[in-house]
Amino acid sequence: MNRIWRHAAVAALGLSLAACGRAGTDRATTVGFAQIGSESGWRAAETKLAISAAQARGITLKVADGQQRQENQIKAIRSFIAQGVGAIFLAPVVSTGWDDVLAEAKAAKIPVVLLDRQITTQDPSLFLTAVAADNVHEGQVAGEWLVGKVGAKPCRVVELQGTVGSTLVADRKKGFDQAIAKTPDIKIVRTQSGEFTRAKGKEVMEGFIKAENAAGICAVYAHNDDMMIGAIQAMKAAGLKPGTEILTVSIDGVPDIFKAMADGEANATVELAPDMAARGFDVLAAYQKDGKAPPKFVQTPSKLYLPDTAAAEYARRKDLY
């Protein structure tokens, strides 16, 4: 239910942006972006970065806010086709049901670049490429950082999972598990769902601290930064020192985790880069220049950020998200 309304809130923004597009635009320099919505700070940042990247390249970007609904996104794509845009970026809200509309785009010879998420289709020729992060890799980067930090010493890790049942959770867990598999002394002793929220992250961490007697916890791995921010509050309330007594590593790279790192209360975050569109533009430019099809999956880097750059990163990001 909240999903629908979450988007009503930003509908006005989306409509006004969509309305910016003028008819009869130059098709080579116009790109339509069928965005999911703006359900999170990360998503808002992705949209903002897409707009600024387009400006830097002299491209006219038309953003359509799908308000988390596939039918809105399909409508937006059809409208982009009708306007004769040079290319379409699509951040698909769901993975299936795109074949018909993408076939229409293909028939109109408009290349489609998927951003951030993949789709399920029998016909890979329907899209040019998918620019996205590898979620398993994100977990691996987080795990490898911890292995490098702890070395051969034993380390009891507690894990804050995301919402039970999503592939994102399964992937981030799998990557982390793979990375620490080689070091038997680093093991996950407790895992519980924090539902990707600060409040639940804090509550679950409170429980971990009681159950593991605080001193027994060496590191916390959270599937997203928001849960980690909650967990950090729980540790501080228990008189523990996150960042020094207990190591933290999480994923996403939201501004508040950089602030925590700058304050010495967090150790590492693996960024889910929000500048997917910029990479999309680059791939597109290369393709339009030499006509050579790019690979079907362009992996965005999952960069590890540490406290040394945190203050600068926070300053750079705090108005972006």
Binding site: W5, R6, A8, R198
Partner: peptide
């Protein structure tokens, strides 16, 4: 209000977590 209220809250925070 259960349905609309959350939308109102998101309008106020502009969809982000306001620290």
């Amino acid at each position: 209000l259960m349905v609309a209220g959350r939308g109102v809250a998101q309008l106020i925070t502009a969809g982000r977590i306001v620290t």
